[in-house]
Design a protein around this nucleic acid. Structure first.
Length: 421
RNA sequence: GGAGAGGUGUCUGAGUGGUUGAAAGAGCCAGUCUCGAAAACUGGAAUAGUCGCAAGGCUAUCGAGGGUUCGAAUCCCUCCCUCUCCGCCA
């Protein structure tokens, strides 16, 4: 959510941002409602001031044993007018709130303007695409032959997109989680084990509600939302809190299962592990001083990239264009890993700066030494990393002609086996 | 799930309808004193909205949201959370 005052004072910038992000422009309606709101506040508060003044007088009169009946009588009309104004104000503010939630975050100037994925810029590529003198298979063929991922039983037990990982695939996942968390800890992230269902306020805080409500599974009976990413509980960890400036940046790494309904996305892009309803992910979250947030974005990206390099997975970095980057971000990098069996790039991480978009919704501040006042922190997050596609790429890139899979060196201390066969 | 108690500012804690944005103490910041520190003393210090060039004014905020009243931290209702006991249970 953007600051109303910011919109009022920077209308042009906001409008340009909306166009760049290809969102609906409600700014004029917002400004009109804001005017209406302030008029109502002006009148209402004037009357309330009068009410308070008279009420004090009534108290004094009663104490002095005087009859206050006529004064009280007079206040009745003021009272009903106040009620009327408060009601109008409530309606106006609800409408205003609704429209404010449709205003996207403004892209950073360094973000390329564009509307489709073709307009994203590949800014970095690492590693060689594996070559082989035998046909490279997609991971689902390999795992099916090895019997290590059971999609059919997953469908029976839960539904499509909820596979079982069996034996060494399960161990491999556990190894990756530990590897990712250890790496994060080494680079200053505090490990956090978070709830995997959250309440409505939390879902709203990180922006899943209202604009992405359909992505989540909901336990309606208890009004709990299953998290689509650890970003939700981990960022909300500090909701309505104020940091000391000297404590920034604050960094967390959280491993959780993630749940996504992915409604309406079927077809051949979603085979195997490419897209699931439940998957594991380690998420990196930072709360930082506004002056450092773009440097922190780069280091966040570096933290995610390092994992791919250590695993020896070829990848590329995309700088997302304005139209493809999403509602809440000001700047976003996607990391895509090369899956040799499918001959496809798979997104495994997305690193974003939200500036104050989330912290304003969540009221996460720091006490500024400069102004002595609480100011909003900038929040960032990035996957470090999402498991299934990493597993897919590892299997496809490290397959042998016999259909076995070689485990990367860095993982072997965690898996305690070197080959999946 | 059942029964009870409770949620007040950074903390402890007073306050059951009328200058209570809120006593008191601690802590914090500044100053006086001191060679310096401690102690003592003096002063300062919330957040948001709104009006104003500003100084500053006004409004709201005592878990959240409603209600009663001329007036609510104080009374009523709903919800949330914490604690104690019981039940159930990984």
């Amino acid at each position: 959510m953007l600051d109303l005052k910011f919109i009022r004072e920077n209308t042009d910038i906001v409008k340009k941002g909306i166009i760049a992000k290809r969102c609906e422009d409600n700014i004029d309606a917002i400004l009109a409602l804001d005017n209406q709101r302030r008029t109502l506040i002006g009148e209402g508060e004037g009357l309330k001031a009068k009410r308070n003044e008279v009420s004090a007088k009534v108290g004094a009169m009663k104490k002095a044993g005087q009859d206050a009946a006529t004064v009280i009588e007079e206040m009745n009309s003021v009272k009903s007018r106040i009620q009327q104004i408060d009601e109008e104000l409530k309606t106006v503010e609800e409408k205003l709130e609704e429209l404010l939630l449709t205003v996207p975050n403004i892209p950073h100037p360094s973000v390329p303007v564009g509307s489709t994925p073709e307009d994203n810029k590949t800014i970095f590529e690492w590693g060689e695409h594996p070559k082989a003198d035998f046909p490279l298979k997609p991971h689902w063929e390999i795992t099916s032959k090895l019997g290590i991922i059971d999609f059919d039983r997953g469908s029976k037990v839960s539904g499509a997109g909820f596979p079982f990982y069996v034996g060494k695939a399960a161990t491999l996942q556990r190894a990756l989680i530990n590897f990712f968390l250890d790496q994060a800890a080494e680079h200053g992230y505090v490990e956090l084990q978070a709830p995997i269902v959250v309440n409505k306020d939390s879902a709203r805080g990180t922006g899943q509600i209202p604009d992405k409500e359909d992505m989540m599974y909901v336990a309606t009976r208890d009004e709990l939302y299953m998290i689509p990413t650890a970003e939700v509980p981990v960022t909300n960890f500090h909701r309505k809190e104020t940091f000391e400036e000297k404590d920034l940046p604050v960094k967390y790494a959280g491993y959780t299962p993630c749940f996504r309904r992915e409604a309406g996305s079927y077809g051949k892009d979603v085979r195997g592990l490419n897209r699931l309803h439940q998957f594991d992910k380690v998420e990196l979250v930072k709360f930082v001083h506004p002056s450092t947030s773009y440097d922190e974005l780069e280091s966040l990206r570096a933290d995610a990239e390092r994992l791919l390099q250590l695993l020896g997975l070829p990848y590329r970095v995309l700088l997302m264009c304005t139209g493809d980057m999403g509602f809440t971000q000001t700047k976003k990098y996607d990391l895509e890993v090369w899956a040799a069996g499918q001959q496809k790039w798979l997104e495994v991480s997305s690193c974003s700066n939200f500036e104050t978009f989330q912290s304003r919704r969540m009221q996460i501040k720091y006490k500024s030494r400069e102004t002595g006042k609480p100011e909003f922190v900038h929040t960032l997050n990035g996957s470090g990393l999402a498991l299934p596609r990493i597993v897919a790429a590892l299997i496809e890139n490290n397959q042998t002609p016999e259909g076995k899979v070689i485990v990367p060196k860095v993982l072997q201390q965690y898996t305690r086996f070197a080959v999946i066969e």
